[in-house]
């Protein structure tokens, strides 16, 4: 059996009194599109930093494609590409120079064919010779993605890659990342845009105060913590106690959870039978935001 793309076992990290990571156990299998979610300060970036060798943990082990990030750091780092959260760049160099240097740091020379391919995929070809200082924020973000990919790592970690990025660029970026995932790359994503995580990730871990508080497939999380909802606005208030889970959502709206669409017709006819008149109606799919709020509240 092949090694997991990422293995994290019993990882703890303290900064003074603060437990940044409090016993994290996690495995990400090869080829997964994995989401790492949590509120600010949950430990996501610390965990990614530990994986990338930027932070040293107090306890526990981390491995990338079976290579320990401390004992076998050279192989572990070759297998990992990290897009950092901060918009960092070296003002001395052009885009192409930055990518050539990054390639060289990983021991690869004459890598221009791949560099050109990445630049084209990220729509940066026309900026290849521009100094990094001259790029917009979105372009700098794309260069960071390019730098993470320059050594063709099988595992790619994106720490808040779309923070402050406009919609068009975000779509283009996700298209590209999805293609990488289809080509076999393992993707680990942290984001505050939960709808992105819901659309992209097959599996999700939620962190709170340095601990994993939920870990499952996206579908299972949605099924467990959120349900479909029928929202109706009635012309006059009617007691809907006979509909399990029905609750007042304010402004004349009532929310009624349900499992399958077959139940909707029955619910509407029962409302009509009690004299209720539906003025407006919305069907809501389960969303990760509800799951997130539920998990964080419970944890």
């Amino acid at each position: 059996m092949s090694a997991p793309a990422i293995r994290i076992a019993g990882v703890r990290k303290r900064y003074g009194q603060l437990k940044a990571l409090d016993g994290i156990d996690l495995e990400v299998q090869q080829g997964e599109f994995f989401g790492l979610l949590g509120p600010n300060g949950a430990g996501k970036t610390t965990l990614i930093s530990a994986l990338a060798g930027l932070t040293r943990v107090d306890e526990g082990e981390l491995a990338v494609m079976g290579h320990d990030v401390v004992a076998d750091y050279r192989q572990a780092r070759r297998k990992l590409g990290v897009v950092p959260q901060e918009l960092v760049f070296d003002p001395f160099f052009s885009v192409r120079e930055a990518l050539r240097l990054q390639s060289g740091y990983f021991g690869i020379r004459r890598n221009d064919t791949w560099i050109d391919e990445i630049l084209a995929s990220l729509d940066l070809t026309h900026k290849a010779d521009a100094n990094m200082r001259m790029l917009s924020g979105g372009m700098k973000r794309r260069v960071l993605v390019a730098q993470a990919l320059v050594h063709r790592p099988p595992v790619i970690v994106l720490d808040e890659p779309t923070a402050g990025v406009d919609v068009e660029l975000r779509q283009g970026l996700w298209q590209f990342i999805r293609r990488l995932n289809r080509d076999g790359h393992t993707i680990v994503l942290t984001t505050h845009y939960l709808e992105e995580a819901q659309t992209l990730c097959n599996r999700i871990a939620m962190l709170k105060a340095g601990r994993v508080v939920a870990l499952d497939t996206t579908d299972n999380l949605l099924a467990r913590f959120a349900s479909r909802v029928l929202r109706v606005r009635l012309s006059a208030p009617v007691g809907l106690d006979f509909l399990p889970g029905a609750r007042d959502a304010g402004h004349g709206w009532v929310e009624i959870p349900f499992e399958s669409y077959g139940e909707v017709e029955d619910m509407l006819s029962r409302i009509r039978l009690t004299g209720g008149q539906v003025e407006d109606m919305v069907l809501g799919e389960p969303d990760l935001e509800k799951v997130f709020m539920g998990v964080m509240h419970e944890a």
Partner: peptide, 26 residues
């Protein structure tokens, strides 16, 4: 041109980058 993996390339690239850095503002 095929990419090639070179021994000590990380060191050589970092050295080159550091020289290039000061040379650009010579």
């Amino acid at each position: 041109m095929k990419p090639e993996t070179v021994r000590f390339a990380g060191f050589r690239t970092l050295l080159y980058k550091e020289v290039l850095r000061f040379w650009k503002v010579s």
